[in-house]
Amino acid sequence: MCRPGGVCIALTKQNFTLKYDTNIPRQVGLAGSSAIVSATLKCLMKFYNITDNDLPKPIRANFILSVETDELFITAGLQDRVVQVYEGLVYMDFSKKLMDEQGYGNYASMDMSNLPPFWLAYLSDPSDSGRIHSNIQQRWLSGESVVVEAMRSFAELTDQARAAIKERDWSRLAQLMDQNFELRRWR
């Protein structure tokens, strides 16, 4: 097994069977495909005795993304994979400088013990989230100003949300979540 960057991990020859079942609804933007790939990698790591030292969490998130994009041809980004690897509330900084220098962002786990209750709502007949987001990466790479500016705004909202969570300012967090949603809808 070789991880991004060319570092290879020798695996023993062992057979295994993989079966999965999920209750994540399809195509509602809840990262169902990445959850399956993330869980599969976690099982394989345990099966082959691969540790966090062998495959560090930031590299693992990149690896999961590469499986989805290069093998399954799914349009995706790192956010869902980072959350799945770190297993919880994670602050993520994807600044271009960090991504260029180290190949991944800076990720910081955050305390969830004092968060207010959150509710998840979804439609039983959703639109295809992959189709909706399919051209965003190309628009970003092309330097389309509306997309670049939206990404800057998302980063600012993220920094403000992190501060609101640390300060336990739940009304401010709700406002920021609304702003994030409106920005996503507009783009």
Score class of each variant (00 low, 15 high):
residue 85 V to I: 10
residue 76 A to G: 09
residue 90 V to A: 03
residue 2 C to E: 11
residue 116 P to W: 03
residue 93 D to P: 03
residue 92 M to W: 01
residue 76 A to N: 09
residue 143 G to E: 05
residue 174 A to S: 11
residue 148 V to I: 12
residue 38 S to M: 11
residue 151 M to A: 09
residue 16 F to V: 05
residue 29 G to P: 03
residue 12 T to N: 10
residue 118 F to N: 07
residue 93 D to S: 02
residue 146 V to C: 11
residue 74 I to S: 07
residue 59 I to H: 05
residue 34 S to D: 02
residue 59 I to Q: 05
residue 133 H to A: 10
residue 140 W to Q: 01
residue 159 D to W: 14
residue 79 Q to D: 10
residue 80 D to E: 01
residue 117 P to C: 05
residue 22 T to Y: 05
residue 82 V to D: 06
residue 49 N to W: 15
residue 97 K to G: 15
residue 6 G to A: 00
residue 58 P to V: 14
residue 162 R to W: 12
residue 86 Y to M: 08
residue 184 R to N: 11
residue 115 L to D: 08
residue 11 L to W: 01
residue 88 G to Q: 08
residue 118 F to L: 05
residue 17 T to Y: 11
residue 73 F to Q: 15
residue 118 F to M: 06
residue 139 R to N: 07
residue 62 N to Y: 12
residue 160 Q to E: 15
residue 47 F to V: 09
residue 57 K to M: 04
residue 46 K to F: 15
residue 44 L to W: 14
residue 13 K to V: 12
residue 170 W to K: 10
residue 31 A to Q: 10
residue 95 S to Y: 06
residue 72 L to M: 08
residue 72 L to C: 03
residue 27 Q to K: 15
residue 54 D to Q: 11
residue 96 K to L: 14
residue 183 L to I: 00
residue 18 L to I: 01
residue 63 F to C: 07
residue 8 C to R: 08
residue 164 A to I: 09
residue 57 K to S: 06
residue 135 N to C: 00
residue 34 S to E: 02
residue 37 V to N: 00
residue 30 L to Y: 00
residue 18 L to D: 03
residue 150 A to P: 00
residue 154 F to C: 12
residue 100 D to H: 01
residue 71 E to D: 15
residue 184 R to E: 15
residue 74 I to T: 04
residue 153 S to W: 14
residue 64 I to R: 01
residue 125 D to H: 15
